[in-house]
Write a protein that binds this DNA or RNA. Structure first.
Lengths: 299, 299
DNA sequence: GTTCTTCATATAGTTTTTCTATATCGTCGT
DNA sequence: ACGACGATATAGAAAAACTATATGAAGAAC
């Protein structure tokens, strides 16, 4: 691209526009400057190119024979750039990029997105499923939903709901569970990567994780849930993970008690950038969905 | 193209180069500025776009997901511009555009151009055949060859040869012409648009145009010559027009006397622009060809 | 033919942008 | 821990671009 170093880009743009529009006045209008400025740009660009691109007629600028070839190519190039800018800025306005953990995305968010889409057809949602904590100031992500203690620097945090844990299992298995101590007699499926402990839920009943039987172990909470659904054991679940499975009866919660895991769901946005409409709309919708979920779960 | 008004072009170029090269240092090298300048350009462009194009990693700049789409388009656009500039300046270096009168072009210049081409294969010649006087500063014409008194403002003029007139006709007709007065007894073909008068040639012999017979008239000197070749009459010709026809024996000059028409051939170039190599090469060749023609004609 | 309008351009001064140079901070590899 | 590399902030300097005005040239209108 070294050829471009010899000619100033604004000059090329002036050439292109003047070739298309024919007079300095119209060119100046399109570029948003005075005609004199355009004249200077064109003259300078012609000098840098070492070629005369326009003949000056009493009615404006007429491309020379060899100038026409240049102008055609310049037009093609600038059209491409224009389209690039249009798409890029149009996209940032209309596309909401959300960073969420894969499990939350697949088990809770994605199944509900269709409703958001219906509510705001002009906003395109792009889900960036990853476990890394992202900085909305240093990526193209508009907002994140993360589980944790809320101890993240340099971002704006908004508490959504406390994570509460409770056992779930297939309905057949639930028949064996009259009281918490019965958990010792059924298989347990575990998420090997989870930082949640059964003690969180057992302690209030005076029980401990050591009494539980061994069982299958998975590297992902979603896989655990699938195992629980097929009756392979009881899992320690939480609201957003289990809600849809509970609602459709694939699993049941044999005990009503839910206990705080110590973590919470937070909405993460930029601490510095002003908030566009698409973000506030999503926040509103998200809170309403959470409230609706919680309400149904509490019944 | 109004989208381009919202983003400064140098910023887009910085984005494109950084996306391709990965670090500020390399980008700065390509653009010929300091890394700090590039950093500012990129940040500014991102703000104008309202989008984050790069994630800053410890190893440089990595395009975001949505940034990649933009960068791909920007690259395409700038490649096009780069090619445009390359071709335009390459062309001006390698293409010599010459403005000449159609008659001179067809009867003298074009038949000799093959030799110039052989001498300088790297220089492409483009002939712009027109009768209008061209200003090399206001068109893409590099040089002109014009007949006149040399009284043209704002251009550099270089005398090539005096225009000298003399009668030519088909060999059969020449048998009837022993002395100038015999011209009264043969048909005369005239160029209706010419500003040359038979008196120019007749006066020195004490003769006058009134004694000449009427004959066919044409709107173009080349057509007159064709008529003379086919024996339709005698025409008042000049060196560059008749040379090739004389050399091949299609016409003859029944009298050796040649008289100055008062006009001359001039090489016209820009008075202000510095002269590129292609022009000086053409001048050298042109003078040599003229000398060779004159020498053969004098024999 | 004269006047008017429509163009482009020259010039000078101002405003704006861009650039450099330096310092700082973060991350990685040794 | 230390050095290397990379991005950014900042302030001052340099360069570029812009405005406003005047000028000249060429058609168009009366």
């Amino acid at each position: 691209m070294k050829n471009l170093n010899r000619v100033h880009l604004n000059g090329l743009r002036a050439l292109e526009a003047a070739g298309r529009l024919g007079t300095l006045q119209r060119t100046a209008d399109e570029l948003g400057v005075s005609p004199g400025a355009v004249s200077q740009q064109i003259i300078k660009a012609e000098r840098q190119l070492g070629a005369t691109i326009f003949e000056r007629t009493p009615r404006g600028l007429a491309p020379t024979r060899s100038g026409s070839a240049l102008l055609a190519r310049l037009s093609a190039g600038f059209r491409e750039l224009d389209k690039a800018v249009e798409l890029a800025s149009g996209q940032t306005e209309a596309t909401l990029t959300i960073s969420v953990a894969p499990v939350f995305a697949s088990k809770w968010l994605v199944p509900r997105l269709a409703r958001f889409r219906k509510l705001h057809p002009d906003i395109r949602v792009r889900i960036d499923a990853s476990t890394e904590l992202i900085d909305p100031d240093r990526s193209d992500v508009d907002l994140g939903i993360r589980v944790g203690t809320g101890n993240w620097p340099r971002v704006k945090k908004e508490f959504l709901l406390p994570q509460e844990v409770f056992p779930v299992c297939a309905p057949e298995l639930a028949l064996l569970l009259k009281e918490p101590a019965d958990l010792a007699n059924v298989p347990i499926v575990r998420d090997a990567n989870s930082n949640l402990s059964w003690d969180l839920w057992l302690k209030p009943f005076g029980l401990s994780e050591t009494m539980l039987a061994a069982g299958d172990s998975f590297t992902d909470a979603a896989l655990c849930l699938d195992a629980a659904i097929t009756g392979q054991g009881v899992m320690l679940a939480w609201q957003t993970l289990a809600f849809d499975a509970l609602a459709s009866g694939l699993v049941v919660a044999p005990f009503r008690e839910r206990f705080h895991s110590g973590f919470g769901y937070f909405l993460i946005t930029s601490a510095t950038q002003s908030e566009p409409r698409k973000i506030s709309k999503f926040r509103d919708w998200l809170k309403a969905e959470i409230a609706a979920s919680e309400e149904r779960l509490a019944r």
